[in-house]
């Protein structure tokens, strides 16, 4: 009799619990947006069309270091010169630049009174540098992806020289 009562109680509890946990559940809030593909770049270089063809490399950064002896040169209100940015993988090979709208170019100019960067309309990785006044400053680039940096140059910068 006691054994019967015990099993009855156990079964009742098991069924009740299953219903309780199954139906009540825990209220879930807004669903998680699954992670998307990220670009994993170890460096970048910048080409200019000034002496096109062939394009000149005016800046080169790879694995936390900037290649010395290169300077991005522009002049005041230079609308003809076009710069294009290309990324490198960890073996130094050129990566295909992202084409989706989730990855955007972000930059930081040391002194914005010397130069202004303007992307080519509809193109993520090409830009003009309009000099404002003669002198030198710096620039560094990031790839912004949904609010965070997929790529950063850290404390490294490229030198910019603005001529008349």
């Amino acid at each position: 009799m006691k054994t019967k009562t015990f099993f009855h109680r156990t079964i009742i509890f098991t069924i009740t619990t299953t219903i309780f946990l199954g139906i009540t559940g825990c209220k879930k809030d807004n669903p998680i947006i699954p992670p998307e593909d990220h670009i994993e770049a170890a460096g970048l270089f910048i080409l200019t069309n000034k002496h096109n063809p062939p394009a000149d490399t005016v800046a080169y950064y790879f694995k936390d270091s900037v290649k010395n002896g290169l300077t991005i040169t522009t002049s005041i209100n230079d609308a003809e010169q076009l710069f294009s940015l290309h990324f490198l993988d960890e073996n130094g090979k050129t990566l295909t630049s992202p084409t989706d709208n989730d990855h955007t170019l972000n930059w930081e100019i040391g002194d914005t009174s010397f130069v202004k960067l303007q992307q080519v309309s509809g193109e993520q990785w090409r830009f003009h540098l309009f000099g404002k006044k003669e002198g030198n400053t710096t620039v560094k680039f990031f790839i912004l992806h949904e609010g965070h940096n997929d790529f950063t140059m850290g404390n490294n910068t490229f030198p910019i020289s603005v001529a008349q």
């Binding site: 015990f6 156990t10 509890f13 098991t14 619990t17 946990l21 009540t24 825990c26």
Partner: peptide, 22 residues
């Protein structure tokens, strides 16, 4: 977190209790 527990005492001296938790 949702918890549920069933604790059954046996009157037998040798068996003490059974616990089921979810």
């Amino acid at each position: 977190q949702l918890n549920s527990k069933f604790h059954y005492h046996f009157s037998d001296d040798d068996f003490n209790n059974l616990e089921i938790e979810a």
